[in-house]
Design a protein around this nucleic acid. Structure first.
Lengths: 271, 271
DNA sequence: CGTAAAGATTCTGCATACAGGACGCGGTCA
DNA sequence: TGACCGCGTCCTGTATGCAGAATCTTTACG
């Protein structure tokens, strides 16, 4: 039932790009629901009933129900015992765990790639992507940053593919379906922050070392590098926490509850 | 048929959230579908349409569709482009990957438990379970083996809980939803095979070492032991492959295609 | 004034009807 | 004889009606 062209939503976030599969009501409900959830339209703990969503999304209950079930599988929603759903909330620790978990799985992918060997073409492609990334790192315009995000996703996606393990691929999809766990999720665009720019340089170095380790069949090294590479996101997370005004630039920021958030918004609903 | 409960994870301990009584049609469809799939009732490549399943399962299309979607998400089914599903097939390599992947995740759980510290109560419970396991290892009757399986599942389930990471727990559930990837899936009951009995002894030793490593906060050691522990299943897998007559004692054996299967799907509907 | 019970209301789970599309089959034309 | 086109059938996606369950409200009683 999951829509076959899942490829579309990897980078685009606001759905500005017309997805070709938008013809089905289920896809529409999925995209719109994700958008609403990411935008924090549902208060924490608020019970999501079907009928209000029906009139809000303009789809009938059947595809809506399927979309809700899928979002529950993805981990964005949590089913209530009596029926209905609530948006799942994540602590800062959950975000850390997600990043660490992605590192573990990407590390396994890198290890598999090193152990099982790769094609010269895959290595070439990784190198080409990483060289283009290097050229973009030192630029400051927004378009370069967008291209960086895209290339970074490509790099990581290809790495997973190179592990040649469908099950690992599946597990990875299960983790990065959380918006803050994707490889580029916590990459910051803040040129004014020197730390966040340095991280791009370090990330590029990691990529290069990872390619080298895989090529030389150094599986342990490859795994360690991939893990440490993922942990760069943790630094970004801390930067964000220090500058809380940045928080809403992250995808799905409203899902994350930071310590010290008083839950005063539990019953007051103003729009 | 109908061996031990496969999905019995939410047993006995805290927070049994998902227990929507077996009276709902969705649960019935899920259980029955899994049973049919495990028993190899659907030929490889056979397209599963909804209407035949409706009369076969006695539920209407609405809950059936939800069940199919869930099974696709679990990885047991694969959605076809034009709609409909096929049962997913797994190679021997897929099984190896699943086991390795479980080892990676259990290793991460063990590392988390060691790094973050655990309660004395959890450690006591692990030790108690493992001591009971030791008493069962040297017995040969079937009931002892059943109890062994149960205790083994408990041990691994508690280990995951001790990581205190809901996301890791979720990822683990995603992996062990495959019937041959569960911790006790490839454990063999064949007392006549000395190798399979030795493995139980080694497994018990692994458990003990794992407890010790976690208690002493040796996170790297804990991770390594857990990984190696999972790899015991690979030995069992090889035993099974060498004695192919054992294959159908494994859960979901019909999902696994072994090399050299000249499959004449013309009239062989009996497994 | 608090509690509990009963009724009312909303919601979910399920079944089914309907429409559009995909696939296959057979006929026809080059 | 082969390829293409039209038609029929099956199937999926969707909407909606209905029944039971859960929840909220109101009221009566201790």
């Amino acid at each position: 039932m999951a829509q076959r062209p899942r490829r579309g939503w990897a980078v685009s976030e606001e759905g500005a790009i017309p997805n070709p599969a938008n013809r089905t009501q289920l896809t529409r409900a999925l995209l719109r629901l994700r958008e609403l959830i990411y935008n924090g339209e549902f208060a924490p703990g608020e019970r999501m009933s079907e009928l209000p969503l029906v009139e809000r999304l303009g789809v009938s209950r059947t595809p809506l129900r399927l979309a809700l079930a899928q979002l529950e599988h993805e981990g964005l929603l949590r089913g209530l015992p009596g029926g209905g759903y609530v948006v799942r909330e994540f602590t800062q620790g959950d975000v850390r765990d997600a990043v660490e978990l992605r590192g573990v799985l990407e590390g396994t992918a890198a290890r598999f790639a090193a152990e099982r060997g790769t094609t010269a073409r895959d290595l070439r492609a990784l190198r080409a992507t990483n060289e283009t990334i290097q050229k973009l790192v030192h630029r400051a315009d927004y378009e370069s940053f967008e291209r960086y995000l895209h290339l970074n996703e490509s790099f990581h996606a290809r790495l997973i593919k190179m592990a040649r393990s469908p099950l690992l691929e599946r597990a990875m999809e299960g983790v990065i379906s959380l918006p803050f766990a994707a490889p580029s999720a916590l990459v910051l665009a803040e040129a004014e922050l020197p730390a966040s720019r340095d991280i791009l340089i370090i990330a590029h170095r990691h990529h290069g070392a990872l390619i080298e380790a895989i090529e030389r069949r150094q599986s342990g090294r490859a795994e360690a590098i991939a893990r440490e590479h993922a942990r760069l996101s943790l630094t970004n997370l801390e930067i964000v926490v220090d500058h809380r005004d940045m928080l809403d630039r992250l995808p799905g920021a409203s899902l994350i509850t930071l310590p010290g958030d008083s839950d005063t918004n539990s019953d007051s609903d103003h729009s």
